[in-house]
Design a protein around this nucleic acid. Structure first.
Length: 261
DNA sequence: ATGGTGGCGGTGCCA
């Protein structure tokens, strides 16, 4: 079972890249972020033609997430708890069946939070608290789950091409990193780090200042696994080549494989 | 130190 996450930065602009990637990468479940579209604007027919069921939590112009699946999926949440009426479309969660029992996949677009010392940063930290609450609920099931998405947090300085340049960025604040560690301390596994403890493993290269050409990246897209999922983790990957294709997203797909045969 | 790019929507806002 291959689970992937990708911030596509507008699903309408990225339809060709997305469909070609789905056909070659063949994830069983993929969560998308920043689709920047309402449900009616989503290129549903193109994605369904590639074999995927499509579930969308859309929003006009900004944000927006989606869950794509080759298998039947039951949507289990369209928002984080407290409140469920968040106007920003940033979370979707569904459940698929496997021979080893149900697997829940959450797709999240965590608020960027810049600039710090504003209500945007406060919203980010509050959103992370809500994600922790949902994680507690999911852990109580003692089942397999994967929380994938654009976390907008560089866990450590090893995940930043220039820590000094990002010292005042919301993605690297001690508060942001602490809130992410809270999830790990609950028992979640950072899939990429389970296989590559030290490498850069960047998932984002800014459009500006030749970041891609210079290799100036950040690792902000993550797959966090419950203990039951981590026990079955067999492979991870970062589809870096997507960043070098025509009209790319500034993020690249991250994926993992679970042995649930 | 600054400005650099891209997406949305049709002006600045957001990343």
């Amino acid at each position: 079972m291959k689970i992937a996450t990708w911030n596509v930065n507008s699903v309408r602009k990225r339809t060709t890249n997305l469909v070609e990637w789905l056909k070659s990468a063949k994830p069983d479940v993929a969560v998308l972020q920043e689709i920047k579209a309402q449900e009616a604007q989503f290129p549903r027919l193109e994605v369904e033609a590639a074999g995927y069921k499509v579930e969308i939590v859309g929003q006009k112009s900004w944000n927006g997430v989606a869950l794509l699946s080759l298998h039947p999926v039951e949507i289990t949440a369209r928002s984080l708890p407290d409140p469920e009426t968040d106007e920003q479309a940033r979370y979707i969660e569904g459940r698929v069946q496997t021979p080893q029992g149900p697997l829940t996949v959450g797709g999240l677009y965590l608020p960027n939070g810049n600039p710090i010392h504003t209500d945007k940063f406060a919203y980010k930290i509050a959103w992370m608290d809500r994600l922790a609450e949902r994680t507690r609920q999911l852990l109580a099931s003692e089942e397999m789950f994967v929380l994938g998405g654009d976390y907008n947090v560089c866990p450590t300085d090893a995940d930043v091409f220039s820590p000094a340049a990002f010292a005042n960025d919301a993605l690297c604040q001690p508060q942001s990193r602490q809130a992410l560690r809270t999830l790990l301390n609950m028992g979640l596994t950072d899939a990429v780090r389970a296989f590559d403890p030290d490498g850069p493993c960047y998932t984002f290269y800014d459009y500006q200042a030749g970041a891609w050409q210079k290799g100036n990246g950040l690792r902000i897209d993550h797959l966090l696994l419950s203990p039951q999922a981590a026990d079955r983790l067999t492979a991870v990957g970062i589809d870096k080549a997507e960043r070098g294709k025509p009209e790319p997203s500034d993020h690249v797909p991250v994926w993992c494989e679970l042995d649930v045969a």
